[in-house]
């Protein structure tokens, strides 16, 4: 209940910044994505209700933008860049290594829910190619050893 109140006041704060309510969709979706790890139709309807627009207008946005997911990601979501500069410096080997190490393909989540993987376009960090992000954190100049170490450390962190 308290959480819902917080979300509503956050939404209202966002809506105020824009000349019309609809413009608040993407920032609001970010809040939901970050809080819940995915966006389902219930949330879409809820957001549509607040903004006074049809749920389909929210759906067309969640569908279009790759950062909005319909199913849960791993606790650590790995996005590895497969664009040109990273590719030239061996990103494919790194990606293959991660797939093998975690036993998942892009789009999948490990059984324990710890990791998910996605291949993405240039992340704007080609000065550190090859590059991946884990949640909001950037890891550059990747080598197999470095990746092994990062994955190992994250697997060991238990709350």
């Amino acid at each position: 209940m308290k959480e819902e109140k917080e979300i509503v006041s956050e939404i209202m704060r966002i809506v105020q910044k824009y000349p019309n309510k609809r413009a608040a969709i993407i920032p609001i979706l970010h809040i939901f994505q970050e809080k819940f790890g995915f966006i389902n139709s219930e949330m879409e309807k809820y957001i549509a209700g607040i903004l006074g627009i049809p749920p389909s207008s929210v759906r067309e946005v969640t569908d279009f933008y790759t950062m909005f997911k319909r199913t849960n990601l791993g606790k650590y979501h790995i996005t590895i860049c497969s664009s040109i500069s990273c590719h030239l410096l061996g990103s494919k080997r790194i990606a293959d290594f991660i797939k093998e190490r975690l036993g998942i393909s892009p789009g999948e989540v490990t059984k324990d829910g710890m990791f998910s993987l996605e291949e993405v376009s240039c992340l704007g960090y080609c000065d550190f190619s090859p590059v991946m992000m884990i949640n909001e954190e950037v890891y550059g100049n990747l080598t197999l050893e470095k990746v092994e170490k990062i994955l190992k450390e994250l697997s060991e962190v238990k709350e």
Partner: peptide, 27 residues
Amino acid sequence: IIVHRGAGAYICGEETALMESIEGKRG
């Protein structure tokens, strides 16, 4: 000045797609 985050679509760098995106639509 308002900071508005995109959501993972290269095409939104194109100027009119960017405006569509700020308006809360597909880019």
